[in-house]
Design a protein around this nucleic acid. Structure first.
Lengths: 344, 344
DNA sequence: CTACCGTCATCAATCGTTTGACGCCACCCG
DNA sequence: CGGGTGGCGTCAAACGATTGATGACGGTAG
């Protein structure tokens, strides 16, 4: 590894001079010729500054830490990572990553280990819009929660979550617009925050359309997977006045409804319109017909989190009050929504 | 931030002494009482060593860099990340992550930026078992390619890839064992390496079973997605002597075959057995019936890569010849394989 | 002739740790 | 009493960079 000393030796000047020049702080301090020689030599020799030394001196590592419980193993939330990493990269920052793999015991050591490395900010990523207990972090290190909210209301952490309610409203509104008046909702209570907000959006959309809220049209699945959709699907579809459309908690559930509908000889979307939530690539688009669904904006949330952290670091928002950002969830239209049967 | 100086001040000894003690190198050099006092004070005050300074001095950052083209955005390969990160963590290393998002221009700057931070090893991750051109890296930094092979045969990089051929053999062997004798293969030529090896495994399994290779039973899809399976499915299924089973390049293709079979009134697995490849969570398990498929061992490969890198760093395998590791791809049995119809 | 100024470059301290080489003191031995 | 020996600690020089203070030098003004 080449150091300033090497360059200085080659050119025949002092280390300080080289440093000044290579940091473009030579204006009025170093002769233009000398500066040029230094620059040329540095690039010829392929000098690369040692960030470690620089960081130590300047107290900035240009590194932000990201700890996640599980982000790296849940498929689509890789987008969060990518979004955060790219946003950081764009401003010259790198991401130090730790996945605690769902083991909460690991959170503290993970954060410690990141702090030891002098990260300038911490992004704390979770999955499915959860409430998180944040490990303690010195005030000098801003924290942003990604896809979750700090459970402590006094927390000074920013956070970004999907605007689930608005997304749900949009999804249900699409069904209303298609002419549906009996719209079921399949929820998954094991995701309490998301379930509540999506249901809220569902109800708001119905109210906005002047439609009655029929609690019997809401059915719960035990879990968010395809198989768990069987029971609620049966409850909603095996009744004479079955809904003409369902809004599903997630794409997996929606996939379950596809299967349940097919098993009953119902065609999607002719006999049953379906709207999902998540826009899981490889599911929503792979289904036939393609699933109209509400997108969970993982990439955008990741980018927001990193960007927000950087704004705090750079001082532009250094001591702004904590902000909770609701990221819009766009509706992705495919082919699973049609007018209800009786209108044809 | 607390430094050695602070502890030294509190206890009334020199910085050196504190350093010695906190690194457990005090044996015979520091009085046991003094040592105890130092340790106590350090923990009371919550001293945490500054890794930056330590790294600068010792020349080891305990950090490995991972650059990937797209790993973070392709769903299941997040497992690679998680595997690598956890393996690194287990040995006290952290992962510095850069996703080049498919933009090859970014690779060099990404690697430069990691090297500037004195990573001790580089893991270069790709997707789908590709040939990769490795950016240049000083000999002192070991490189491991993850889910790909170095295109340069003289490369000194280790690599790990799935044992596609063996996986394919296992998948097809499962069909043979169920009694199938006409087994189709749906390939996707746009993944050249994987396609070749999976086909090779397919053919080996047939030969091993003494079955003829019928080239008309091999059909190609334009792409690896569900919709792209339509054409090859038609070619294989719309013929009088259609195969009783298909082995698919990927789970998405398999999903396409499910749909194609259903459209033709064929039941999976009664009329058509299907085996996939990838074991994409949320697809293989979500399908109905569950898809028997060959697992792509992303997590294990990630862990292998990190572990291998660490072995080179620690000197245990410092100058072993480059190793290419084939990671076994276990068969995951679900319900898409049954005996062929005519045997019943 | 001295004082002062601008130009160009270097000095030296610093960031927080690490670590081989010393130093000091008490004690013991011959 | 001189010299060796442990035991206990500190010194000081790194690691590679940054940066305010300082200085040498030639030229110009008073």
């Amino acid at each position: 590894m080449l150091t300033l000393r090497d360059i200085a030796g080659h050119v025949g000047v002092s280390i300080s001079t080289v440093s000044l020049v290579l940091n473009d702080r030579d204006e009025g301090r170093v002769n233009a010729d000398t500066a040029a020689r230094i620059r040329r030599t540095a690039s010829e020799l392929g000098y690369v500054p040692n960030q470690l030394a620089r960081s130590l001196k300047k107290g900035q590592t240009h590194t932000i830490g990201l700890v996640s419980d599980r982000v790296a193993t849940v498929p689509f939330s890789g987008h969060m990572l990518a979004g955060a990493q790219q946003a950081a990269w764009d401003e010259g920052y790198l991401l130090l990553l730790i996945d605690t793999a769902g083991n909460d015991e690991l959170q503290r050591p993970a954060v410690r280990s990141l702090l030891q490395r002098n990260i300038e900010a911490l992004v704390f990523a979770t999955t499915y819009h959860r409430l998180v207990d944040l490990p303690e972090v010195p005030r000098s290190v801003p924290v942003v929660v990604l896809d979750g909210r700090p459970s402590d209301p006094a927390s000074r952490a920013d956070f970004v979550v999907p605007d689930e309610a608005a997304g749900a409203r949009a999804g249900v509104a699409r069904l209303v617009a298609a002419g549906h008046r009996r719209i079921g909702f399949c929820t998954v209570p094991s995701y309490p925050v998301a379930a509540r907000l999506r249901r809220q959006g569902y109800e708001e959309a119905l109210r906005a359309a002047g439609l009655p809220l029929d609690p019997t049209l809401v059915a719960a699945a035990e879990d968010a997977n395809t198989r768990a959709a069987d029971a609620p699907a049966a409850r909603l579809l095996d009744r004479p006045d079955r809904p003409t459309a369902v809004f599903c908690f997630g794409d997996q559930i929606a996939m379950g409804f596809y299967q349940a509908a097919r098993a009953r000889g119902l065609d999607v979307p002719r006999d049953l319109s379906v709207v999902g939530f998540d826009n899981q690539e490889y599911v929503a688009d792979a289904l036939s017909p393609g699933l109209t669904t509400v997108q969970l904006p993982h990439g955008a949330m990741g980018a927001w989190a990193a960007h927000r952290a950087l704004r705090r670091i750079t001082g532009e928002a250094a001591d702004a009050p904590p902000e909770g950002h609701l990221m819009p969830c766009p509706l992705v239209e495919r082919d699973s929504v049609a007018p209800p049967p009786d209108t044809r």
